[in-house]
Design a protein around this nucleic acid. Structure first.
Length: 502
RNA sequence: CGCGGGGUGGAGCAGCCUGGUAGCUCGUCAGGCUCAUAACCUGAAGGCCGUACGUUCAAAUCGUACCCCCGCAACCA
């Protein structure tokens, strides 16, 4: 079987930010996809990391009386610790202040400069002294910025405009490149206007915490030029050709807020470097809190850690993956979380495991019974089970995680129905082998469902599979072994009881 | 007319491309079962598919117009 390559990235998060549900979502999504692809036998590489340069870091460090690097080193664990707790299994973690990255950024700057795609020019723009950055005319009109004045500054520019037509054609020729599709349209719309060149430098006088431009020591490079390169510097561009050739191009998972930077800045940079464009740029939506946006001022920020502590990692992963569909925004409410947890995990999945194992303990001495000879009823379940793997694989390869999960849950629901119609608790009184056949079939379907949910809920599924005595089983129908003793176990997903309001 | 997405039973969504019994999850109500985490199963109520025209034997599905919501409109991580 020919393996596919699957190189998946998250954005590198700004180290100064407090990790929130959005960061967690993208990272879990990347983790789930990479675990699925790994299980499918693909050659997987999963990268995430931190963006550590820029003004905010510099200022925050100054405030604390630390060097910027010490400040970053101090903050980085907020992310890495969270990823550990969320069960994130990444292959590499890049920080833009690492020498391996800076070296490549400098060499790329030099290469692009030598290739004639970087030039210097005087830039005149509106500058907010209070904010210490250039602002757009729109922003100036908004009146949100104080001490605005026009200043002139010499800077380096990247010839983004040069690649506009090529980019338009590329996007038109590759329908699956920017996803979901309405984002692709958005970018094509954006590209109908002429692109201007991208300012990629900052004078050190204004900003010193960055990567020095190799051909002009008075400047550091603009954060995006620095940050985007992480996607290739981490996998060996300019340092390990074999590794780079093995994984590039990759799949970029991003929030919809940074679609332009990825689909325009990054792609034109790659054109200039004469490298293939990413396989996919996937812009997912945002988590809204009830009716409003999540924001610190509203005090409705959901802290992933709180949720994990209350309900466990896997429940959080399951919720985030099943509730957000494709590129749309999703709503996060505690009520929603509890509803989905209870109905899917506690009532359907967890309770079904309890039903079958309880019956096996009661009527079959706690030993997984023989599969027996399948009747039409068993054949229905088995054929659904056999079809499920390929179906889920197709959906995962198409980034439809929520639909994939739903397909698995459909099998679980079908098994609950099957139990009801076959009633093994009644059968046991008259025809014990028939009852065993039903329980074997139900348990096997449950095992298969668990295997397919492994990427989403690694811990819980490992528990289930070890209870069933087949920790390393796969997607073939019938891998469940008869004659194996089932241990007793506490409820897998205890129901969350909510006090009813009067 | 800047560009784009969307308006489907109480909630969230699918269906629209390739017209022809309006589907799924949750919620509500009734019943069943009693192996199970008060869970599971069955059934029911509830929709003029944003509005108005048009094309067609037939439109949620195609066309036109309008109304409403949302995203994008760049150097901002």
């Amino acid at each position: 079987m020919i393996k596919s390559r699957f190189y998946v990235t998250t954005p590198i998060y700004y180290v100064n930010d407090a990790p929130h549900i959005g960061h967690a979502y993208t990272t879990i999504l990347a983790d789930v996809l990479s675990r699925f692809h790994r299980a499918l036998g693909d050659d997987v590489f999963f990268l995430t990391g931190l963006d550590e340069h820029g003004q905010k870091v510099q200022q925050a460090a100054e405030k604390r009386g630390l060097s910027p690097q010490a400040h970053c080193d101090d903050l980085a664990p907020r992310f890495t610790d969270l990823w550990k707790k969320l069960g994130i299994f990444n292959d590499d973690f890049i920080r833009t202040t690492q020498e391996r990255h800076k070296r490549i950024v400098r060499s790329i700057l030099q290469k692009v400069y030598d290739g004639g795609d970087i030039y210097q020019k005087e830039y005149e723009g509106l500058y907010s002294v209070a904010e210490e950055r250039f602002i757009t005319e729109k922003e100036a009109e908004s009146g949100q910025f104080r001490e605005v004045k026009t200043i002139k500054e010499k800077n380096y520019f990247f010839k983004m405009s040069k690649y506009q037509d090529r980019l338009i054609k590329y996007i038109e020729d590759n329908p699956g490149f920017i996803r979901p599709e309405h984002r692709r349209n958005e970018m094509l719309g954006f590209l109908r206007q002429p692109l201007t060149d991208l300012c990629i430098s900052r004078p050190k006088a204004r900003l010193s915490w960055g990567i020095e431009i190799p051909f002009d020591p008075d400047y550091v490079t603009y954060v995006w030029f620095d940050a985007l390169i992480n996607y290739i510097s981490a996998i060996g561009y300019g340092s390990d050709d074999v590794k780079f050739g093995r994984f590039w191009p990759g799949v970029h998972l991003i929030g919809k807020d940074i679609l332009t930077t990825h689909s325009i800045y990054w792609t034109t940079m790659l054109f200039s470097l004469d490298l293939p464009l990413p396989e996919v740029i996937f812009a997912h939506g945002w988590w809204l809190m009830g009716e409003s946006k999540m924001s610190k001022s509203l005090g409705n920020v959901v802290r992933p850690l709180d949720l994990i502590e209350q309900h466990g990692v896997d429940a959080v992963r399951y919720y985030l993956m099943s509730e957000m569909n494709l590129g749309a925004d999703a709503n996060f409410t505690p009520e929603n979380f509890i509803k989905r947890y209870n109905s899917d995990l506690a009532n359907d999945f967890g309770n079904l495991l309890n039903r079958v194992s309880g019956l096996i303990a009661k009527n079959h001495g706690g030993i997984i019974p023989d599969a027996g000879v399948a009747t039409l009823a068993e054949e229905d379940v088995a054929s659904a089970g056999r079809a499920l793997g390929p179906k889920v694989e197709g959906l995962i390869r198409d980034y439809k995680v929520d639909e994939a999960i739903n397909e698995v849950m459909n099998l679980v629901r079908q098994v609950n129905k099957y139990m009801e119609t076959q009633a093994p608790w009644k059968l046991a009184k008259t025809d014990l082998p028939a009852a065993g056949r039903v329980l074997y079939t139900a348990t096997e379907a449950l095992r298969l469902s668990a295997v397919l949910l492994k990427a989403v809920m690694p811990e819980k599924v490992a528990t289930v599979l070890s209870i069933l005595g087949v920790p390393d089983s796969g997607l073939t129908w019938g891998e469940l072994k008869s004659g194996v003793a089932l241990p007793s176990f506490p409820a897998l997903f205890p129901r969350i009881e909510v006090e009813k309001k009067a």
